[in-house]
Amino acid sequence: MKNHIIVVLLISLVSCTNSYWSDGITTEINLPNHVSQISATVIIEQGAIGFSALVSASSSLDSQTGPDVIEDAVISVMSGDNTLYNLDANHFDSRSLLYNSSLSSLVSIPNDIPNGQIDLIVSSSNYEEVYATSYMPEKPSPVINYSPEVEVDSLYDGSLLEITDQIELSLLNNLDLDESYLVEINAFFLDVQSQEIEQRNLDIYSQDPRVRELNINSNSSDMDDEYNSRYSLISDETVSNIYNGLENITFFITRDEKPSYYEFQYMICRISSLSPSLAEHYNSVDSYLNQSGSPFAEPDLMYSNISSGFGCFGMMNTYEEQLN
């Protein structure tokens, strides 16, 4: 709240004084010659049907088109000497501009990544090869206590939204590992008119210091519609030395008002454990997007674990539980 107040007041002050200089004066800047590097982002979810990889070339600020997608990349995912996946131009989807591991496969096979170090190698004819490592985290085994709010006046989280339900999570805290978890709640409704099941993602909040709320809006000009997502990210960073440091984390769940012909069926809680690189990636993207656009913030480089390039190679393992 303090941050918003300060920004509003500062902007109002500056705007009172800058009308004379609204266009500014132009100074030429001599940008150095840019050598394009591969940007590769590969996120693999255990048990999901395939994964998508985004491979593009970095571009100079002067570029009219921005980063160009690379269509002839070769993407190898390996466990030791075993090749788990090998994607090439045959896996490239020209509509989504992504490499899809299940694109040229007739059978849908869930991802089954073994334990241990997993390597990523991405190469393309015109660019220097890039490399990254990650590992598949353990599937979470949480204890979830769900408390629907029967009466209106039981709980409140400090925001202006009406609160209905509460869940309390407890997770094991492995003192030897850096652990992070994404939490989301999906509600399922039956449309009585169409007899179809509708899924809605619910907004959840927490004031627990172990939880960070992320707001990620796409800033790509290729997106026709504004696309954004809110996440709740649990991190053991502040409790890394505490054995039971991830117990009793409380979330408040809000439900938007639905039409009367929607019948609530059930809710599903999804908790995804993230590899450290993937958690760092989500945090970094959130920080980056929230700072960009400010005239006083310095440009900051997003996290990358891709050597000689940009992007992220990360993994996630998801647990789901139906809440009754």
């Binding site: 940008l31 940007s39 970095s58 571009s59 993602n201 999804r270 997003m302 940009f310």
Partner: peptide
């Protein structure tokens, strides 16, 4: 100052769709 840019993504809440992000290289 920013000198170049690159593209990356995160998965949306369902885990099924990507949200593309343009990042800057300072």
């Amino acid at each position: 100052l920013t000198e170049s840019s690159f593209e990356t993504y995160v998965l949306d809440q369902s885990g099924e769709n990507i949200i593309p992000i343009i990042g800057q290289v300072p």
